[in-house]
């Protein structure tokens, strides 16, 4: 009796305003399906940026120490300690109940990147502050050096666990970028750490920072390109609007700084300008990625369209399998009998 379901998308008339198509997919009055992240701006993107900068700075400082470059090492430790302390402050400020921040230490949960991150950020901050304090005061130098080396070991984890934090959500632009985002964050952290070192050291001491800036720039530019190009509709927020502008700015700043370092990296002004540009690029990258996630959560089409495509692909696969399994159809080309 009911002929074609009255809800079929092929109706001759435009759909009602209530269930109207939202860019090709239906929705409930265009309302979001997901909840937008409630994390504060600038707190959380700022923490992503400073935490990454601190991690790379600590690793740079540790190797500088082992290589017998005490000045480069000391400045790296200051940058690491400053970035880590600021990160912790921003994270606590972002909590809905800041006075309960110690509740983070009740458990260690591998299924929660924020729990794992707490257990990386906490020790990292303690170690890098101890190393920096020992450098600044001259007290307990061997212990301070050891703390600096340990912080350097944790540094790479500091710079990429935040990518796991974002990708382990239902936000399509973040979750679907889980293969690329850690590399964007790693590259961005390296260039930020190198940028801080370029600002804090004279060029004759900063050769490793220059090389790190170039390697990091290559990694960041390549990985960002993958994120913006590979993801199709889900990656749209990375290409358009405010997040798109932020990420393009980051690309220009990173590429410009790398070029400047390559031609005039030994000049004081050029190194300083490149360092500042790299830090600015790092901030733009993190704010851009964060903003893209918010846009992605807000618009139901980024949820519905990929999930519909997934369902269609699964139905198609099931149909093929059924065709293939049907007796007599084994060798025949697929197609309606």
């Amino acid at each position: 009796m009911t002929t074609a379901p009255p809800t079929a998308r092929t109706g001759a008339q435009p759909r009602d305003r209530d269930t109207a198509d939202v860019s090709g997919s239906r929705s409930y009055y265009g309302r979001p399906i997901l909840k937008e992240p409630t994390w504060l701006v600038p707190d959380v993107p700022g923490y992503l940026f400073l935490g990454g900068m601190a991690g790379a700075s600590a690793s740079l400082a540790a190797l500088a120490d082992l290589e017998g470059r005490p000045e480069l090492a000391a400045r790296g430790r200051y940058a690491a300690a400053g970035g880590a302390l600021a990160s912790v402050g921003l994270l606590i400020h972002d909590l809905g109940r800041p006075e309960r921040f110690l509740h983070m230490l009740r458990v260690i949960k591998p299924t929660s990147p924020l729990s794992v991150g707490t257990w990386i950020l906490g020790p990292f901050t303690a170690l890098s502050c101890a190393a920096a304090a020992s450098d600044a005061t001259g007290i307990w130098r061997p212990a301070g050096r050891l703390a600096g080396l340990a912080a350097g070991l944790l540094g790479p984890a500091m710079s990429t666990y935040t990518a796991a934090l974002l990708t382990d959500t239902a936000v399509p632009a973040w979750h679907e970028a889980r293969a690329e985002l850690p590399f964007v964050f790693a590259g961005s952290a390296l260039t930020s750490g190198a940028g801080a070192a370029l600002l804090l050291n004279p060029p004759e001491r900063a050769a490793p920072a220059r090389r790190l800036a170039l390697i990091g720039a290559g990694l960041e530019l390549g990985a960002t390109r993958l994120v913006t190009r590979r993801l199709g509709l889900v990656g749209e927020p990375y290409r358009t609007g405010r997040p798109g502008r932020l990420l393009r700015t980051a690309e220009v700043l990173t590429a410009g700084a790398a070029g400047l370092l390559a031609v005039a990296g030994r000049r004081r002004w050029a190194a300083a300008a490149a360092g500042a540009a790299l830090l600015a690029a790092g901030a733009c990258t993190r704010f851009g990625v964060f903003e893209a996630g918010r846009v992605s959560a807000r618009d139901p089409k980024y949820v519905v369209a990929p999930q519909r495509a997934r369902l269609a692909a699964r139905a198609e696969a099931a149909r093929r399998e059924a065709d293939g399994a049907a007796p007599g159809a084994a060798g025949a080309p697929a197609g309606p009998g």
């Binding site: 991690g55 790379a56 690793s59 740079l60 190797l63 500088a64 290589e67 591998p110 990147p113 540094g155 790479p156 984890a157 710079s159 990429t160 666990y161 990518a163 796991a164 990708t167 382990d168 889980r178 293969a179 985002l181 850690p182 590399f183 964050f185 790693a186 952290a189 390296l190 190198a194 490793p208 920072a209 090389r211 790190l212 390697i215 990091g216 990694l219």
Partner: peptide, 20 residues
Amino acid sequence: IWRHAALAAGVAAAAVAAAF
């Protein structure tokens, strides 16, 4: 997710080492 984050951390560590 953790595999890629760990891989990226390894790349970051290698990059810092290469810079020296």
